[in-house]
Design a binder for these strands. Structure first.
Lengths: 210, 210
DNA sequence: GACAATACCAAGCAAGCGCTTGGTATGTAA
DNA sequence: TTACATACCAAGCGCTTGCTTGGTATTGTC
């Protein structure tokens, strides 16, 4: 029965802590456009000239804000994880039962992927290979915090014998299933995000629930 | 209780029909190496020089076998779908109950992704964007046949009220979940492909079953 | 109003890209 | 033996790529 946590408030506090760029600022706008381009064309196919054109500057001027193209990709990923971790934490905290917490996690991740910030989330999932070894390690560290949220809830459901499969395996299956929605789900179709969430729950044999 | 269908026999008959290249021939060897490189580095990051070096020829000589680099990607995808469709059909035909058929589909797809031919299967899933519009349409046509196999079985399970969620949605969730295994599952770990299949069934609330 | 820092432009470099070209061995058939 | 196709090499063309450089507006600070 979670009231959708205030997305804007969380975003604002992250901006205040300098953990996420203000989407109105130059840097934030670039990251937003970059996320969109990376999702649509892939990191490799997106040129620095594409990126620059998207925010209306010359390609060389990009390197005043970022040292390399890869640094842009990394920034997109890091800020996306930070935002979504915060959103997840709030959503889980607002839910009562364990099953509700799972529902909240699924719903929030679906929203992260298919909502306004979805472009960045898709990049996080599909452009992994384009990160250098060093950057990958850094991003992974943040990702672990995010994943721990899931494993806590799935572990509890396993203890309650509501979900019988291994929590690690279930989480990984859900990662694939939910992120894959970016390739086919359209919010303006006949299925709402809540409806999609219910379908996922139903697929796991979990009821319409409370 | 399906006896794993004879993989080699199916492969041979496809080669005889000229639907799949002989992996011992020059073309087949290149496609195999290409699939590996595309999976590991991505299509864009793989250069024609990489491809040529993998089979021990000069980069220019590639274009004696294929007109463009994209044609190589397309060939990898087309042949992979053809092989796996045939494998799927055999696996489904060999299973008795509907639930067994689902198990066979899951098991076969997991094997396709994580087994010997898995590299190509991963390419099929993750390098979609790199195909031109025209090639995409052609590959999609083949893919529809493959997907129909799944939808038949999932539709039947839905009629039987064994799986309550929408067959289309379930199939798409499974596509994501199963293909995502390529990023984390290692066959030499503690979990066998049969074990993994059971975990997926368990996640859907379907028993250890027959 | 002086002065630096910031944000950008215009131009272009070096490297790497997909692909072409002209030629040479090797195999097969008449 | 001649004739022709197949499978390759060596060289490199034209273009795009990420990124650099040197300079100029714009902004904030005292």
């Amino acid at each position: 029965m979670e009231q959708p946590v205030n997305h804007d408030a969380i975003l604002k506090s992250l901006i205040a802590e300098n953990l996420v760029s203000d989407p109105n600022g130059a840097r934030g706008r670039l990251l937003r456009e970059a996320a969109g381009l990376f999702r649509d064309k892939g990191y490799e196919r997106t040129t620095v000239r594409d990126l620059a054109a998207a925010v209306g500057i010359q390609s060389g001027s990009l390197f005043h804000h970022f040292r390399t193209k890869e640094e842009i990709l990394k920034a997109v990923m890091v800020e996306t994880i930070r935002l979504n971790t915060a959103l997840m934490q709030a959503a889980v905290a607002a839910a009562d039962t364990t099953q509700d917490k799972l529902r909240a996690l699924i719903r929030t991740e679906l929203e992260s992927i298919n909502g306004q910030t979805g472009e960045a989330m898709a990049v996080l999932v599909f452009e992994w290979r384009s990160l250098s070894e060093a950057a990958r390690a850094e991003v992974l560290e943040l990702r672990d915090i995010y994943e721990a949220l899931w494993l806590d809830v799935l572990g509890a459901l396993n203890d309650e014998k509501v979900v019988l499969a291994d929590p690690f395996v279930v989480r990984r299956m859900l990662t694939g299933a939910l992120s894959w929605t970016v390739t086919w789900y359209r919010q303006d179709g006949g299925l709402s995000l809540d409806g999609l969430t219910s379908q996922v729950m139903a697929m796991m044999g979990l009821g319409a629930d409370a």
